[in-house]
Amino acid sequence: MQMNQIGNAAVETAGRKIGEVILSLEHISLAFGGVKALTDISFDVREGEVRAIIGPNGAGKSSMLNVINGVYHPQQGRIVFHGRERRAMEPHKAARQGIARTFQNIALFKGMSVLDNLMTGRVTKMHHGLFAHMLGFGPGRREELAHRQKVEEVIDFLEIQHIRKTPVGRLPYGLQKRVELGRALAAEPSLLLLDEPMAGMNVEEKEDMCRFILDVNDQMGTTIVLIEHDMGVVMDISDRVVVLDYGKKIGDGVPAEVKANPHVIKAYLGAGH
């Protein structure tokens, strides 16, 4: 399934299906000095699925995402994305290949408006440079307007029309999380990495966010890898779950399997239960 235009995606890709493996991680090991963050981890992500990564604090979940989008460079292992192998990569190049992400602690551009944040999200799709931008008319401007159209579709999708001109620093936490998702969506990614998209939200906000995530997956066919602590949410929305503990993989499978896995129960509840 190719990434479609946001507006009419519902028609074209109604009904989701899980396809080929688009990302596979093989024997990834990452260490910071003597600290082993990840040890020999392998798993894959199939096209169109919602893949959750869970685990206790410090298990290496965020490091895993950072490896996928090139912020961290693993010492060992290989990453194959869309058939292309890579070991290490600059984050901005990963973005150009279609990997977008959100952060555990909101990483929006605080001095800019919601609209500008989302427009920045489309940087990989814009091709004109400095001199075209300087003019204020001509091709640079036309490109800008065309992308504004796309960004407005994301704004409509996330129901944030009323705050489009507000500087993000002034928004409440829940909305900032939503804007950050919007910024990632504006890039029309084929793989979306969400680092605790529901952390610190109340039930209502969580439900909204779940709905957006499922809609993204459903209507746009975007493959999603997410980290989440709320077990109820994870079991409800994900297709397959990877469990990490102390930088090692201790479980992998559909939610029901993972829930029954003794290692997982041990990691979460402690021995003796």
Binding site: P91, G111, M126, H133
Partner: peptide, 30 residues
């Protein structure tokens, strides 16, 4: 010209680097 730059992709890339350089890079800004 500066005003035009500031409200274009170039200006947004600058401000993104100013506000949060890691996020800017992850979005695809070199």
């Amino acid at each position: 010209a500066a005003k035009n730059l500031a409200r274009s992709g170039t200006g947004r890339a600058w401000m993104a680097v100013r506000d949060m350089d890691v996020a800017a890079q992850v979005i695809g800004i070199p």
